[in-house]
Design a protein around this nucleic acid. Sequence first.
DNA 1: AAGTGGTCTAGACCACCGC
DNA 2: CGGTGGTCTAGACCACTTT
Lengths: 255, 255
Amino acid sequence: MVISRERTATVPLSGVLIERDSPTPLHLQIARQLERAIDRGMVPAGSRLDNEVELADQLSVSRPTLRKAIETLVRQGLLVRRRGLGTMVVARPVRRPSALTGLYDELAAAGRTPTTQVLEIRRQPASPAVASVLGMAPHAPVTVVERVRCADGLPVALMRNYLPPALVSVDRAVLTEHGLYQLLRRQGLTPHLADQEVSARAASQREARLVGVPRGSTVLTVRQTTYDSAGRAVDHGAHCYVPGRYLLRTTLVSP
Amino acid sequence: MVISRERTATVPLSGVLIERDSPTPLHLQIARQLERAIDRGMVPAGSRLDNEVELADQLSVSRPTLRKAIETLVRQGLLVRRRGLGTMVVARPVRRPSALTGLYDELAAAGRTPTTQVLEIRRQPASPAVASVLGMAPHAPVTVVERVRCADGLPVALMRNYLPPALVSVDRAVLTEHGLYQLLRRQGLTPHLADQEVSARAASQREARLVGVPRGSTVLTVRQTTYDSAGRAVDHGAHCYVPGRYLLRTTLVSP
DNA sequence: AAGTGGTCTAGACCACCGC
DNA sequence: CGGTGGTCTAGACCACTTT
């Protein structure tokens, strides 16, 4: 009988099932299922996975395919790899607000109830600044959307969005029931990258009234440009958040 | 004579030279040089690269190696790939403050002159909250650093950092001359991932005095936890930025 | 010395795009 | 249809970490 001297127990990927006929790539199937297994605690934080060759064997895929799946989770900060040591599940208590989610999904994921009041949808000539960031001709028509966003009935933000009419057609119902990112996705425009500029200032009288805070209160301002996977600017937003009612969370990743 | 009907001219990677004996991986050499070429305009925005097989051939590497280089730049939003179409350089005017850079490097990259005044370096028992995010035992000693950061002589931020003494030893000179991220890197702790919570409030009397703004002025507050590549928390910061003197820029990437 | 991830190769087949 | 990126494979060698 062979007694192997395991330094620490390693974890196999017994729960992961892959479908070879599925249109979703194998490495994505593996990454998603492993992510879920970690989230559910089936692969405990701090534990060490079996080595890559074994894992690939267990799942009947090649090592590069398995590696690609693991790389995805490493980039998300869920796994850590070290040469000579192995692949470990990061011990981390809470976290992961992820990046690049719309406010609707973010509030919903946090267990709060998001509602939206669409104040206005209009079309107007784009200012030079807006035309520039959206890559449009100056004074070309741009769609402007203004919304008050609430969480559990309390206003958390006043949002003004500028959308290129050539790419995006706006549906009031979708904006009210879901969010802008949902609307973009339905039109095949997957948000892929966003630039954000965050600052703060005193609220204007109108802003204060719309979000229900005293005039002159501090608001968090965000200017954000969203690009789709083809590199086209699909949205530019100028938003005011009410500090205390909403915390702007981002996760930064090293290149 | 053969006349090929090129839909648009494609760009070869003539300027890229790779060293096979270098310790830096081939795919990284390619990615970095291609990135520089784009930044310098040698590969113009909007242009289309040669196809992957040709590029791999030009550089005498395999296709997977070349693809890995290109994937890096796609993830950074510099290139866009579409099946059947090719790989294009994203047409983009300014941008790219990148992510996860220290304030020192960020100011320097923006052409401003960063200086730092170290107010205090002390060691004290960690509060339960700080101990928790740093993964330390409650009331274990933690290093606290307080600094005023200036750009071109004008204060832009007041920073308080909590550092685990077991991982980080603090050097006042390095903090003054460079930055915290530089100090971490010198100790082999490469920042890899950071969680940020941004909000805003009125400045306290002390904060207002230290950054030179009227009492009660609005300040942008950031709580940030930085993790190294091994997933260990290496820093927790509670900072105040002066809006108008500094714009918090982040780039969000989809998973 | 043994075990691990890191890199690179050569080739294959497929899915999508525009003509 | 031809051209492009997207995926997957099987195997090789190397660099690092611990025993």
